[in-house]
Amino acid sequence: MVKSKKVDNLLLRAENVKIYFDQRGNGKNVVKAVDGISIDIMRNEIFGIVGESGCGKSTFGRGLINLLPLTEGTVYIDDKDTTQLSKEEMKDMRKRMQIIFQDPSACLNPRRKVKEILMEPFKIHGIHDKDVINDRIIELMELVGLAKYHLNRYPHELSGGQKQRIGIARALALEPEFIVCDEAVSALDVSVQAQVLNLLSDLKEKLGLTYFFISHNLNVVYQISDRVGVMYLGKMVEVAPYNSLYNKRYHPYTEALLSAIPQVDKDEQKQRIILKGEVPSPTNPPPGCSFHTRCPKKFSKCVTEIPLLLEVEKDHFVACHLYDSFHEIHNR
């Protein structure tokens, strides 16, 4: 499995995480948003995750920082089981993990000035020393590349990029270690998106942060991540370091996803794999490999057996029956 032996640098370990939504409360119509994912995230690493809408990437991100209860499985942070923490311990833990949301207009209180928005985390965590807070807020504004006068503005007076910077500053307020970026640049225009992506990279280096970076855009994820995970219908189908994924994409879904991205560069516009049909409902996922209904390379085993996420190359994991024999060779 992806989780390896004991690693020194390990920050977060998710073990067989399942998050189900029981819509009616009667065990029928259960949406299996996240269906058994295990990953390790190293300190100071950017773990990028891609997938289409409804694949469970945001749900998984929220599960990692305990914003959603896990149906099954555990998340360890520094060997501490976050599902077993008391309320007090959890509050302490929250300082260490933060989230940046997609739509900066929706996650900032429109009736508060930027300064008040940034003071909120300190109030919640019982830091009341005004001088300390003020110094920290000014420091935060500098970190995210905004000026002091922005502190007296309301969110509607800021541009989309500036609002997202406030969202980032708020997430950084309590000096967290781990940040979930949930489509953090998706609502921004290309030129602003590039600014914010660079800012996130710089901050990671400067402050030694670790990101779980969620996006539907493989280009963006590829640009920023150290390792990339591809999700489909609540399952991880491929996990690899970004350069390994560039060299070779094993899973037919990853290949199709990549080829579907419209490329600006005419040389890159290769023959496109157009998948037929749509993502099946996560309430009633297909048996066997959940991708088999759209897979151009499916064979009989795919319909009946669920493929496991196996290592086909060093650090490159794939859940696909095409490579079953690969795995055996690799392990010999």
Partner: peptide, 17 residues
């Protein structure tokens, strides 16, 4: 604008803004 788009290429460089 063209330089600001993240590209999937072998050598990763910081985006130009």
């Amino acid at each position: 604008l063209i330089k600001a788009i993240p590209k999937i290429s072998k050598d990763r460089e910081p985006l130009q803004t």
